[in-house]
Write a protein that binds this DNA or RNA. Structure first.
Lengths: 251, 251
DNA sequence: TGCAAAACGATCAAAAACGAACATATAAAC
DNA sequence: GTTTATATGTTCGTTTTTGATCGTTTTGCA
């Protein structure tokens, strides 16, 4: 067994398991622990992995190094909760619009569990996440890069989406009240409206902190959505939700 | 048993086993170990295999052999060197095509130093990098996501680039010889050709390891480029370069 | 906090593989 | 038949790889 082979094995294992241990590798590859440590040191030097005490872990992906992730951790548990609920709408062999934003992004691990699907997005972070799943066909709609959100906007983005159709769309929003969903940006609102228009079913994913926030542009009525997924950490929202007929609300 | 026959045997064995050892080959072919080593050295030079300590392993194409992260760190010093040389072509308030690939990606810190520029790319990793520089207008051309390269391909990508014009383009390549630049993928070759066609000036960025590699599609003649930036760590390339009129070659 | 176990890096040693120089052999060219 | 070029083998000093040892650092637990 050559060194190259050994290191290839380590990388492969790292890719599937996310981590490796010196002891396990030493046993599996039938070489001393010292040798494994040397391998890991070299590969750490090459930025192929991150050394830990007792082994190594995967190196962070391109986007994870970026500040985008910091904003993402805001209300992360709510977002994960919402994503799990929304994921029940996913079906095999369908085409899916994913709106830009950190809430919808949490859905991607569930999308990755599908055997086959076509995903259309205009969020670079999502596209990078989706690159992990070769069996998912990913279409990234082009446009001008908005650097704060790592997503694409502009008339090109809108016009391209206008030509696409999907079975299902997952939409985020900046704010909502008892009847409407809002977005801060006019262009984004137009895009969201078009996503809903061009898909058979639409799921709104929105955490409770957005309730009764102010925002400029209405892009849809809440009743336009087949489902409205949210959490329940806000008293006034609780009241609103309990007043609703809950048939299309998941908490 | 002639040398040709021996090497053919080695290649065949490599194809079935994925690896060969000097000792085994020496025994099987009834020649000394030195001879086998010489064979392997020659074939390594011809990029037919990859030499290892004690033998050799199959030579897969770089994309299938390494993950994006690995390719990123491969020949990183050469890539940085090339990027620095190529950066002298950058000018304020111009529009710039950036071809996908890890070599061209090294150019981005220099692009970021500009006060104002419009960058057009179809590489997600590059777009993510560019998001650090809000003063740079970035256009990401959409398409199908190719997960190994983190870049976008397809007819949409091509058609969009067809409608764009730039002052300057930076192009990478998978292989080149004394007259031509090659790409492995037909679609990528078409895109590269279009980038060159639609820009006033073109700079080829290519490290020496690509010299005389095999690849399918010619997308340009070396003389089509205003400048050819490379490093100089390969004997045969050195010879080729010194035979050239060096006016448009930067090392 | 302090202690023991585990993991670590540094150093040394041995075996395997290596490259370079030189020698030999074989085949083609004159 | 001699010369020349190419291919192969031998020798030997050097480099690479790996493992063993040992003192030090880190970690988890009492």
């Amino acid at each position: 067994m050559y060194a190259e082979e050994r290191r290839e094995y380590i990388l492969k294992k790292l890719q599937t398991d996310g981590k490796v241990s010196v002891l396990d590798l030493s046993d599996e590859l039938q070489v001393s622990e010292v040798t494994i440590r040397r391998d890991l040191a070299v590969m750490d030097d090459m930025n192929l992995l991150t050394r830990t005490y007792g082994g190594a872990i995967e190196r962070k992906s391109v986007t994870e190094q970026f500040s985008y992730i910091e904003r993402e951790t805001l209300n992360i548990d709510s977002k994960k909760h919402i994503a799990k609920k929304a994921s029940t709408f996913l079906r095999e062999r369908t085409s899916i619009f994913l709106d830009a934003g950190t809430t919808v992004r949490q859905l991607i691990p569930y999308v990755g569990e599908l055997n086959s699907a076509t995903v259309i997005t205009f969020d670079i972070a999502m596209a990078t996440d989706l690159a992990r799943y070769p069996h998912i066909t990913t279409v990234l709609v082009g446009g001008f890069l908005e650097h704060q959100t790592l997503s694409l906007v502009g008339i090109d983005t809108y016009k391209k989406i206008e030509t696409l159709q999907a079975d299902l769309s997952f939409i985020g929003c900046d704010a909502f009240n008892d009847t409407d969903a809002f977005s801060t940006s006019t262009m984004r609102a137009a895009i969201k409206a078009k996503l809903i228009e061009n898909s058979d079913q639409s799921v709104l994913m929105c955490d409770s902190s957005k309730y009764r926030q102010k925002s400029l542009n209405t892009f849809a009525k809440l009743k336009d959505f087949n489902c409205f997924t949210t959490d329940r950490h806000n008293d006034r929202l609780n009241k609103f939700l309990s007043e609703q007929s809950l048939k299309n609300v998941i908490q």
